[in-house]
Computed example of a mutant assay.
Amino acid sequence: MLIESNADLSRLNTFCLQCTASQFGRFSSVAELLELWRASEASNLPMLPLGRGSNVLCPEHVEALIVQSAMTNVRLQRSTEQHAYVAVDAGVCWHDWVVASREYGFGLENLALIPGTVGAAPVQNIGAYGVEVGELIESVEFFQPSTGQLRRLNASECRFGYRDSIFKRELAGDAIIYRVVFRLERQFAPELSYGPLKELEDGLRSGQLTPAALVERVVEIRASKLPDPDKTPNVGSFFKNPVVPAALANQLQQQYPTMPVYPLADPEHCKLAAGWLIDQAGWKGKWLGPVAMHCQQALVMVSDGSASLADVWKLAAAVQDSVRQQFAVMLEPEPQLFGSYSRS
């Protein structure tokens, strides 16, 4: 196991922001993870996890030992009539797991082609087309550097919310996830109520829609709208879809009849489409220095590859200000600032 000093992280974050870390190491087992922790303690450096870097914004330097999982095992733990419980190591590519999950059960199809690793998925509670990963997680296994303990939280203890979890709050920067146990459905009953997936409902009713076909369609949709981070630096959706009072949503919809509004379980609130708001505010395809809101999906900020973190925040602030002035809605950034965690 090698620990690299003054490690270049610019190719380990999908926005390609220039960043170095005091130290960097990969672990292929829990035993190696514990070795890295002991090294971080000896160096008096905090230990922070990094997946694919697809939902983080990196500063120029991170004073920490950055660790990345190289654990890639997938194992069926048990199976019942309704569910299959599958343990998946954190280092597995997320999309590869979605494709492979069909061998065990169903439910993850709508989350195909989301960049990142399995270990990062619970942190953000990734979601797409009406499905959130927290709905299909049984438990999360992680190492807590502050206590030196291996821990396990069940789904309720993870406190999953919209693009949120305990790993972004109390455990931010203090949880190295090394395994996630999924609870997959044994019966294929896909969520098709969102956007272009509605066109597949007839196929589901006739029995012609397969899990493979659904994954293929989700991949087609995402690829047509979202830039490939391997070709165009970005961190995916830059802003969360805002949740607003239903009264404000109704008021705005009277003014803008084509504005998408999504009902929530709480009838007092609705969810709006951040991409639509950004487009209407005039930022779709518009550049501000080396960064822009994507010409096909205004929710995604892209870079020409030369952007600094200051450039990113400058455009984010300008977009927030425009949307706030026009719609009285404040957009909240989705990606985390890497290395900004603090512990009590």
Results as ranks from 00 to 15, higher is better:
Val62Phe: 04
Asn250Leu: 14
Gln68Pro: 05
Leu57Glu: 13
Gly236Pro: 11
Ser306Asn: 14
Leu57Arg: 08
Glu132Ala: 04
Gln297Gly: 10
Ala213Thr: 04
Gly25Glu: 05
Arg343Trp: 10
Val244Asp: 09
Ala64Lys: 05
Trp287Pro: 14
Gln336Gly: 11
Pro115Leu: 05
Gln325Asn: 02
Ser344Arg: 15
Phe182Thr: 01
Ala121Trp: 03
Trp276Asp: 12
Thr210Asp: 01
His95Tyr: 06
Pro145Ala: 12
Ala246Ser: 11
Leu309Asn: 00
Asp228Leu: 13
Ala318Ile: 13
Arg205Gly: 03
Pro260Arg: 05
Val74Ala: 02
Trp37Asn: 12
Gly289Thr: 04
Lys286Cys: 04
Arg163Pro: 12
Cys295Asn: 14
Pro290Ser: 08
Ile166Trp: 07
Cys16Phe: 07
Ala175Gly: 07
Glu141Val: 14
Leu315Gly: 00
Ala100Phe: 13
Leu76Met: 02
Ser28Tyr: 15
Asn6Lys: 13
Gly173Pro: 01
Arg11Thr: 10
Ser224Lys: 12
Leu277Ser: 08
Asn73Asp: 05
Leu153Phe: 00
Ile166Cys: 06
Gly53Val: 01
Gly236Thr: 14
Trp287Leu: 14
Leu299Ser: 00
Ala213Ser: 08
Leu111Ala: 09
Leu2Phe: 05
Phe327Ala: 06
Val56Gly: 00
Pro49Asn: 08
Glu201Tyr: 13
Asp266Asn: 12
Met259Gln: 07
Ala121Tyr: 09
Gln18Gly: 12
Glu63Ser: 04
Cys16Pro: 11
Ser40Asp: 12
Pro267Tyr: 04
Val312Tyr: 00
Gln253Gly: 07
Leu204Tyr: 14
Ser206Thr: 02
Val131His: 00
Lys231Gly: 02
Glu41His: 08
Val319Met: 01
Tyr341Leu: 05
Ser5Asp: 13
Pro211His: 10
Val30Trp: 13
Pro46Gln: 03
Ala292Asn: 03
Arg152Met: 11
Leu34Arg: 13
Glu32Gln: 03
Gln251Arg: 14
Ala265Lys: 14
Ala112Phe: 10
Arg52Asn: 02
Cys295Met: 15
Glu170Val: 14
Val133Ala: 10
Leu226His: 10
Arg151Asn: 06
Ser101Gly: 05
Val319Lys: 00
Leu36His: 11
Leu277Trp: 04
Val86Phe: 07
Tyr256Leu: 00
Asp96Trp: 12
Asn154Phe: 10
Ala121Asp: 06
Arg222Ala: 01
Gln124Ala: 01
Val323Gly: 11
Arg26Met: 07
Val323Asp: 11
Cys295Pro: 15
Ile137Phe: 10
Val319Ile: 05
Gly25His: 10
Lys225Asn: 04
Phe24Gly: 09
Leu264Gln: 03
Leu226Met: 02
Glu138Ala: 06
Ala87Asp: 09
Asn6Pro: 10
Pro260Val: 04
Gln208Ile: 01
Lys284Tyr: 07
Val319Gln: 00
Lys284Ile: 03
Pro260Lys: 03
Ser146Lys: 12
Glu334Met: 11
Ile114Val: 06
Asp230Lys: 15
Pro335Gly: 06
Leu309Gly: 04
Met47Asn: 01
Glu268Met: 13
Ser146Asn: 08
Val312Lys: 01
Ala84Gln: 11
Trp94Pro: 05
Gln18Glu: 11
